[in-house]
Design a binder for these strands. Structure first.
Length: 466
RNA sequence: GGCGUGGUACCCAAGUGGUAAGGGAGAGGUCUGCAAAACCUUUAUUCAGCGGUUCGAAUCCGCUCCACGCCUCCA
């Protein structure tokens, strides 16, 4: 039985999809105005892992993730660099895919862009105005918060509390300081769309309500995003959607915790952020994914280089085992038979069950990962004595690793050995066979200088990038 | 001020009432010409502190101390 924490009800709940075996899931995407950082990686790894687990359980999932490709930050940057706003957004959308592909994050079923859905957004806002949930002042349209009774139910706030902290821009003429913009009137040097609401562009929150309901229907199973979006973004999404449809917008809300640097929240304003480009230049993507999965998704996660060093070593334990499995002396027919009879390996079935128990308990990837280590150790212990059992443990390990999005075969950087290095390795093997230790040690030093560590095994010398 | 989260070994980290998973580092071992790597074994009578509830608490309750987040753009 799968249960997980629902931000809306503030407790763990058993999961039941609206339609049998089908899940409609929406996760807030990025605003493409700059390179992705480790916080983005955490969010999308978390929801990718959740998605993969649902698929493993047999659900058919429709996963939608938007791009907020028109926004103040993009406009500011495009004005500063004197290029069109979409040049900025397209550049960073391309970057997003490159880096997320490296992390083995499955593509969404669709990635709708705000700029391509303006008409739907305008219609949505018009209907809100008609229902008296929104009002237009001089071409700015605001949501009338006081008319939506449930406002605050997600973030656990009430209107009185919120009024205390509310800040109002000087040039805004809202009825109520808590009202938020649905449609922003075009200012000078800003891209705009002509519409019945006036010349302008959508506010931030409205897009997700529109794109989620347009792609998935009025009620969706799961809505996800970073914890920083709970208020006001997700609170406002609920208000807009439920005001219009009078139906529950999302049954389950899932939020991932922040990434911290030295126990402080990582953020642009503090300047303490790391881009994924920088990180992945130094470390294997799967080491990063391993690190992210070691922490429970709802807790804050403290990031540092040390952690990635640790997880690089940890990653090597898995990839080494994969390499050893490839060298097992088993013919294809035997392998096929093992695959077909995997359920007969009771030890492995038990470990697989523990993996699922962990995932069923609020997606406890850390405990699930621990189970992967158990299978790894099991496989390592018997690989010399029982090739068939070792191969079976590899199959189970690989299956479960992939549920977590860990593709250990993608990571063998060390397999890319240049021919020059291979030549030296060959010479060194010859020297060793001739018991010429002086020459062998000399070649080893040369290899080290060239950035390769040697590893002597029974089957000859291998090299690994340092 | 209001709302909320967390403090578990040298470091990271799981644990949600039944007697402390896992990883890194350290130590010992196997292998090896020597190394390195790899693999195996091992490492918390104790969970920030003090009280309480219970047959039983890291887990529940109360207080104290410490760290952090949200209430404004953020994944």
């Amino acid at each position: 039985m799968l249960k997980f924490f629902n931000t809306l009800t503030k407790r763990e709940e058993e999961f039941k999809s609206i339609e049998p075996n089908k899940i409609k899931m929406y996760v807030c995407g990025i605003t493409p105005y700059d390179s992705c950082h480790i916080g983005h990686a955490r969010c999308y790894v978390v929801f990718d892992t959740i998605r993969r687990y649902f698929e493993f359980l047999g659900y058919e999932i429709n996963y939608i993730q938007n791009f907020t490709d028109i926004d103040d930050k993009i406009i500011n940057k495009s004005n500063a660099l004197n290029v069109k706003y979409n040049e900025i957004s397209e550049k960073y959308i391309d970057e997003y895919f490159i880096v997320m592909d490296k992390l083995n994050i499955k593509r969404a079923n669709s990635n709708p862009k705000v700029s391509e859905n303006i008409d739907k957004i305008v219609t949505f806002i018009e209907r809100l105005v008609k229902k008296n949930y929104a009002y237009n002042i001089d071409g700015n349209v605001y949501f009338r918060v006081k008319n939506f009774e449930d406002y605050g139910k997600l973030s656990g706030r009430n209107l009185e509390e919120l009024k205390q902290g509310a800040r109002v821009e000087i040039d805004e003429k809202k009825e109520n300081p808590l009202d938020f913009a649905l449609w922003k009137k075009a200012k000078e040097n800003e891209p705009f769309w002509e519409s019945s609401l006036g010349k302008g562009r959508p506010g931030w929150h409205i897009e997700c309500s529109v794109l989620a309901t347009a792609n998935l229907g009025e009620t969706i199973d799961i809505h996800g995003g970073g914890a920083d979006l709970i208020f006001p973004h997700h609170e406002n999404e609920i208000a807009q959607s439920e005001a219009l449809t009078d139906k529950k917008f999302a049954k389950y809300w899932i939020h991932n915790g922040f990434v911290m640097i030295n126990k402080e929240k990582m953020s642009k304003s503090l300047g303490n952020f790391f881009t994924l480009n920088d990180i992945l230049e130094k470390y294997e993507p799967m080491a990063l994914r391993l690190f992210l999965l070691t922490n429970h998704y709802r807790k804050p996660l403290d990031f540092s280089d040390d952690k990635l060093e640790e997880n690089t070593k940890r990653l090597a334990k898995f990839t080494n085992f994969y390499r050893d499995v490839k060298n097992l002396k088993l013919d294809d027919k035997t392998k096929t038979e093992i695959f077909a009879n995997l359920k007969n390996f009771e030890n492995l079935e038990a470990m697989k069950k523990k993996f699922c128990d962990a995932m069923n308990n609020d997606f406890n990837t850390a405990a699930a990962l621990a189970e992967l280590h158990e299978i790894l150790e099991f496989g390592n212990k018997i690989k010399e004595s029982d090739a068939e059992l070792a191969f079976a443990s590899f199959l189970v390990l690989d299956e479960l690793a992939k549920v977590l999005g860990l593709n250990f075969e993608l990571t063998e950087k060390s397999n890319e050995i240049p021919t020059e290095i291979q030549e030296i390795l060959k010479q060194r093997d010859e020297a060793r066979n001739a018991r010429n230790w002086a020459e062998s040690d000399r070649l080893r030093d040369i290899l080290r200088q060239k950035g390769f560590e040697v590893k002597d095994t029974k089957n000859g010398t291998q090299a690994m990038k340092i």
